[in-house]
């Protein structure tokens, strides 16, 4: 056996654990899900599971509940992502300046992210739906009715989920982008200050392009957490889903309805779009060599 062949074998051997992990933890579940989405698998079925082709997908296409959940999910992801990015970038830029007591402010900003979600969710839940009747709870009750009155039932709950996601996510993105800003040599900003008085122009011509990889990664993280969000929505609305997103909708279908096939199809519908978005973003923060700056 030649030296090269031995090297190649060794390379595969060294890769094996990672490949095995990917296969069992990622490829198998995804493959299973894809397969299930093409069947009528259900614990409620007496008869053997049958292959139904694209029937589940066809059914979804004609189901208004699906379109509602999909629209909610997209709205949820886009709105939270945009607001988190804007707030996070603002916080990061403010924190990048040397100010007195910066460490404390930093801590305050990072706390929403560092705190266990399960606990802070209860805080938000009680803040938005106070458990004890007081003047405040009356006021919040009126707010809820006003919001639901204008935007339809469940809007208040959806708004609270959105707020919670933004509150928690801005904190993370702020700290994340601050690390990004700190990684950029200060001379690059100083050099811009020598050329332009307008902070706005410097922001767009220098700060944003320099931060682009970090911004892309931040959007990447914000999008994935929003699209995959089930836990926060579930906890914050205590399962009373009046404004379903795809995650909760699939959960209902599968766990409560026992319809594994349609639920699998449902949770896969956004995958192609999400993958495309992630691919574009990935190219932005890790461009191929020839396009590198």
């Amino acid at each position: 056996m030649g030296r090269r062949a031995r090297d190649v074998r060794l390379a595969y051997l060294l890769l094996a654990p990672a490949v095995l992990l990917l296969l069992t933890a990622l490829a198998y579940p995804i493959g299973w899900e894809v397969w299930t989405s093409l069947t009528d698998l259900s614990p409620l079925n007496d008869r053997p599971t049958a292959f139904v082709g694209l029937a589940n997908y066809r059914h979804l296409a004609g189901d208004p509940a699906f379109w509602r959940a999909a629209a909610n999910t997209v709205a949820y992801a886009v709105v939270t992502c945009a607001v988190k990015l804007a707030l996070g970038l603002g916080l990061a830029l403010l924190l990048a300046r040397p100010v007195r007591g910066r460490a404390l402010v930093f801590l305050a900003i990072f706390l929403p992210w560092a705190y266990p979600a399960s606990v802070s969710v209860i805080g938000w839940y009680w803040t938005l739906s106070p458990p004890i009747p007081t003047a405040y709870s009356v006021f919040m009750g009126q707010m809820k009715n006003a919001v639901d009155g204008v935007l339809g039932g469940g809007a208040w709950a959806f708004l609270s989920v959105t707020l919670f996601n933004i509150w928690r996510g801005s904190s993370f993105i702020g700290v994340f982008l601050l690390a990004g800003i700190n990684a950029i040599p200060p001379e690059l900003f100083e050099c811009a200050a020598l050329e332009s008085k307008s902070a706005w122009r410097r922001f767009w011509l220098v700060t944003v392009p320099l931060l682009k990889p970090f911004l892309a990664l931040a959007v990447f993280l914000a999008l994935t957490t929003a699209f995959a969000d089930l836990a926060n929505v579930w906890m914050l609305t205590a399962g009373r889903i009046v404004y379903p997103v795809l995650g909760t909708h699939a959960y209902w279908l599968a766990i409560h309805g026992g319809q594994f096939g349609p639920a699998s199809a449902l949770s896969l519908t956004l995958a192609p779009f999400l993958l495309a978005a992630l691919f574009v973003l990935f190219r932005m923060f890790d461009p191929p060599e020839r396009e590198r700056a």
């Binding site: 040599p185 001379e187 690059l188 100083e190 020598l194 050329e195 332009s196 682009k212």
Partner: peptide, 17 residues
Amino acid sequence: KDRDIAMVFQNYALYPH
């Protein structure tokens, strides 16, 4: 910006993009 000076930095401070 209004001082009419130009500066050269130790690490060059060129914009990578």
